[in-house]
Design a protein around this nucleic acid. Structure first.
Length: 640
DNA sequence: GCGCGGTGTCATCGA
DNA sequence: CGTCGATGACACCGC
């Protein structure tokens, strides 16, 4: 979004383009950094009546006709993506929005704020609500949308608002922060239209005319020359809207559901023919699309031979005024994300999906829903985009994912063309932009791709792929490269180490697509598990080492005890020897009554308890009797 | 080519 | 019931 913001601020061209694409019933995969007033423009009525948390910490109650607070302090409020609110258990009231939308069974489109809101708006299906928002839109248009649609910008001539529209203090377009808007009663024609129809509650569809009137209120009058005509009765059929460039009634429920890629959208726009036939779409010359990617491309190059610029002069003007950086930023943000989304879509060979999305050995990866999504592969004959890493783009998704491929084959780099490559990267006509149908419900289903990727083997793939990486990318971990590719605004280290509370609040504070959230959670899970595995192995190693130490110490102790035992045996033997010598010595000194020596073979010495020593004949002294006598003596001694 | 150790990842279990 | 850490199992990689 940060890339789009300057361009947006330069003149709201992006929104114009959005509408242009919407006219062609094409979906737009953009993450627009829209501010609250534009949210209100597109927001469904479910937002109305809710409290909004403003940047200044205050809350604002949104009424149907005046989304702006009655008093100052409005500043610039930002709504977070409703899915983020949903994830937050302590979600503010806006969180109800998504639940209500889901209750209607309307698919949420995480990658597109504008059309997501449009879907929500249509899903709300309430004309009052819808046109209340149009009233708000008109109110917003009174202030213009040039300055990043802060809701407070220059008051355009003829601009106005709804019944309680707000005219902001005059601030130049591009200013970051605006003074609090003071509610006024200036009513513009455009706002009058919208609010009037809101009050009438006539239909449930946006009128693109309202939007163009909103846009035309910009100081630059970018829509000057666009014949808007009168507000047509709604709902107009989509064909009505499509066939008449001056008639902009679009059933957004149909328009948004008819998904195509932005590239395709641009192609169709460039042809100035809002073809609805998928076959016809694929028959368009694809080369025109990528010419927009080129920083040297001007409008004529982008839309050769078309009268698009005549049809929408603001496009021409803005395209002329766009700097290369703007185009570059557009390229990075839009095409990368669209590429990524397209990768997860249906109609794509699973092997190619895994090849593009998976790293070597990467099992869960981006966790794309392979069951619901269509996929288009983008290939071209451009030979340098991958293998040379020429772009150095920070959002080199497919570039990176090439490195991470786990697939059944190793495509030649020359067959792959990264969308970011703006120099000369014409699409291969045969492969690029087949008719795709995004549903943009990128739910997680890691197992699908896991099984696919894990079942495939690609010997030596990492070596081959690593050649495609520049030194910088090679130093990054796979998750870091994935995070980089998806523009995840947090570092991998942050994601992993952050406490769970901070982590959840961080996620809720940022608008993140399902894909980004999935990757972030995968990164966190893998990172935590990696650390846990390292700790586990460390502990296991410590246990093994400790056990080895224990074994060593026990063995040493055993040896010591053995030595002590042998020493004790030796001491005992010495004592026995000494006792034997003493015994012999005593007998040698003993004499009987006749003075003859007493033989130790016939007599034995017996010690009595009182210390006296008796000479007892051996035949009278059986060893067993000896012990019994001794025991009997002890008992008698105890009794006594 | 094979074996081994290191590492990352996933599945599972228990707190 | 969800989260997190621990751990077994497996695959991959480098030596």
């Amino acid at each position: 979004m940060k890339y789009l913001k300057p361009w947006w601020s330069d003149g709201g061209s992006l929104l114009h383009f959005t509408i242009l694409l919407s006219l062609a019933e094409l979906r737009l995969d953009l993450d627009l950094d829209l501010d609250l007033d534009l949210y209100l423009l597109f927001a469904p009525r479910t937002l109305l009546g809710d409290e909004l948390l403003l940047r200044n910490g205050q809350t604002s109650h949104i009424s149907a006709l005046s989304p702006f607070p009655a008093s100052g302090g409005w500043g610039r409020a930002e709504l977070l993506h409703p899915k983020c609110w949903e994830r937050d258990p302590a979600a503010p009231p806006e969180g109800r929005l998504l639940r209500e939308v889901r209750a209607l069974g309307v698919p949420f489109i995480p990658s597109t704020r504008v059309d997501a809101w449009l879907v929500h708006s249509v899903a709300a299906g309430d004309a009052d609500g819808t046109h209340a928002l149009l009233g708000a839109a008109a109110a917003s248009s009174a202030g213009g949308v040039g300055a990043g649609l802060d809701g407070v910008s220059q008051a355009a001539p003829g601009g106005g608002g709804g019944p309680r529209a707000v005219q902001s203090s005059s601030l130049a377009a591009g200013e970051e922060e605006k003074a609090p808007a003071e509610p006024t009663a200036q009513v513009s024609d455009a706002g009058g239209h919208a609010s009037e129809r809101y009050q009438n509650g006539t239909d449930a569809f946006f009128s693109l005319e309202d939007l163009f009137q909103l846009l035309s209120s910009q100081p630059e009058n970018l829509l000057e020359g666009v014949s808007l005509g009168d507000i047509a009765p709604l709902p107009g059929s989509i064909n009505d809207g499509m066939n008449s460039p001056t008639h902009y009634n679009v059933n957004f429920s149909q328009a948004v559901s008819h998904d195509v890629s932005l590239h395709e959208a641009m192609l169709l726009c460039s042809d100035n023919t809002f073809r609805r036939d998928p076959v016809a779409r694929t028959s368009q010359p694809q080369e025109q699309i990528l010419q927009l990617c080129s920083p040297t491309t001007n409008t004529e190059q982008t839309f050769p031979g078309t009268n698009l610029t005549g049809f929408l002069p603001f496009v021409d003007n803005q395209m002329r005024n766009l700097s290369q950086d703007h185009l570059y930023d557009l390229d990075i943000n839009i095409f990368d994300e669209i590429n990524l989304m397209s990768l997860a879509t249906e109609g794509f060979d699973p092997m190619e999906v895994s090849w593009l999305l998976e790293e070597p050995g990467y099992d869960s990866g981006l966790s794309l829903d392979s069951s619901n999504n269509s996929t288009s592969v983008i290939k071209s004959n451009s030979s340098h985009s991958i293998c040379e890493g020429a772009t150095g783009s920070s959002s080199d998704l497919s570039h990176h994912d090439l490195e991470g491929a786990v697939g059944g084959y190793c495509p030649e780099p020359s067959k792959l063309c990264h969308m970011n490559d703006r120099s000369d990267c014409p699409f291969h006509g045969d492969l690029a932009f087949q008719y795709v149908s995004h549903n943009h419900t990128y739910h997680l289903q890691p197992s699908a791709l896991e099984s696919t990727s894990e079942s495939l083997s690609w010997p030596g793939k990492s070596q081959k792929i690593s050649r495609y990486l520049n030194d910088t990318d090679r130093n990054l971990s796979r998750d870091e490269r994935r995070a980089k590719a998806l523009h995840i605004p947090f570092s991998v280290d942050e994601i992993i180490r952050m406490p769970v509370d901070s982590f959840n609040s961080m996620l809720s504070r940022h608008y993140l697509t399902d894909l980004q959230l999935s990757l972030i959670r995968d990164i966190r899970r893998r990172g935590k598990n990696k650390v846990a595995a390292q700790n586990c192995r460390k502990r296991k190693l410590d246990v093994i080492l400790n056990l080895e130490d224990d074994v060593c110490s026990l063995q040493a102790k055993k040896e010591t005890l053995k030595r002590e035992q042998s020493q004790c045996h030796k001491a005992i033997n010495i004592m026995k020897q000494k006792l034997h010598h003493l015994y012999r010595d005593v007998f040698s000194r003993l004499r009987d009554d006749q003075g003859r020596p007493i033989s130790p073979n016939q007599y034995a010495l017996q010690c009595t308890h009182d210390g006296s020593v008796l000479i007892v004949p051996k035949e009278l002294m059986i060893p067993g009797q000896k012990k019994e006598n001794q025991k009997g003596k002890r008992k008698n001694e105890r009794k006594n």
